Amino acid sequence: MPKAIRIHEYGGPEVLRYEEVSVGDPGPGQIRVRQSAIGVNFIDIYFRSGQYKAPQLPFTPGNEGAGTVVAVGEGVTGFAPGDRVAYGSASGTYAEEVVIEARMVVRVPDGIDDDTAAAMMLKGLTTQYLLRRTYKVQPGDTILFHAAAGGVGLIATQWAKHLGATVIGTVGSPDKVALAREHGCDHVILYRDEDFAARVKEITGGKGCQVVYDGVGKATFPASLDCLRPFGTFVSFGSASGPVAAFDIGLLGQKGSLYATRPTLFTHAADRATLEEMAADLFAVVQSGAVMIPVHTRAKLADAPKVHADLAGRQTTGATVMHP
């Protein structure tokens, strides 16, 4: 029987159990995939801890992966057994085999290996909607990207630089500064040690940024708002340090008629045509060499508890991929 990571109760990394599971045949509109690489993301920790609730317990975590189609359900067109595929908004991907809605899946082009595909789907598609849909980065813009050495950060800073922006990145420790610079940051700020809002004002000559992308949350809010110029956009897309607390919307007026938004990949990817456009854009910048996908950690699926402990402890940079 195939194996998977199962969560029977919410908690720390120790609740991740490696167990045999039964994987059914794909139903109408579904495909079954034998996975070769599984992406790891901070959202997996939110589900494991219970900050985000799964539909039921026990459940298999994970949204991202890549592999080969082994069976297709009724009514599925465009996919056949043997096709290489990847996905960033599936469910239950911490597994050897998984049944997925075909509408969540894209074909992987030649020239992109499975590890890269598994590492880039959730983080790369997140980057795509952030930089190309939520606030469309233009040449000459100055942007602030928090956690620039993280999985999304290292993709986003390269892509933003490629789009012609001046990129300011924040990182949590001195050893991540060089990495952030190598991946497109023009300026790097240690957000735990420096007043990052004051540094942004200094770097921008008092003007501020057009946009702040914030996946950190509690630790960087509301100071992120002080980094924006009038009519600037605050984009909250994650809460690695804890969620942003409720705030008075009047704050946005006081700080310069700001825009604030909380988009998610799931909303964007729900429309099949949009997902295909986003994936094509992502694959194009990766295949051109403009954006490299840094896979810094590879681990066995059975070692998921250690993988989660390292990710939560900010011990990782770039992407982590697990192999069944």
Rank of each mutant, 00 (worst) to 15 (best):
M1Q: 14
P2Q: 11
E9V: 05
G11F: 08
E14D: 06
L16H: 05
R17M: 02
E19W: 08
S22C: 04
A37H: 07
G39P: 15
N41W: 10
Y46M: 14
F47A: 11
R48Y: 06
K53Y: 11
A54R: 11
N63M: 10
N63S: 14
A66Y: 06
V69D: 01
V72S: 06
V72M: 08
G73M: 12
G73A: 11
V76P: 04
F79N: 09
G92R: 03
E97A: 00
E97D: 06
V99N: 10
I100P: 02
V105D: 00
D115F: 13
M120I: 15
L122V: 09
K123D: 08
G124I: 11
L125H: 11
L125W: 12
T127C: 14
L131H: 12
I143W: 09
L144H: 05
A149W: 01
G153Q: 01
I155N: 01
I155C: 03
Q158D: 00
A160D: 12
A160G: 12
K161T: 00
A165F: 00
T166N: 02
G169F: 04
V171C: 13
G172M: 03
G172C: 05
S173H: 13
D175S: 04
A178H: 14
L179I: 06
H183F: 05
C185M: 10
D186G: 10
L190R: 07
E194N: 01
F196E: 00
A197T: 02
R199F: 13
R199W: 15
K201W: 01
I203E: 07
V212D: 06
P222G: 15
P222Q: 15
S224Y: 05
C227W: 06
L228I: 11
P230V: 15
F234W: 02
S236D: 14
V244H: 07
A246F: 11
I249Y: 15
G253H: 14
Q254N: 11
Y259K: 10
Y259E: 04
A260F: 14
T261I: 13
P263N: 15
T264N: 11
L265W: 05
D271C: 00
L275M: 05
A279K: 12
D281T: 02
V286N: 05
G289W: 03
A290G: 00
A290I: 01
V291C: 05
P294N: 02
D303L: 07
K306Q: 05
G313V: 10
G318C: 14
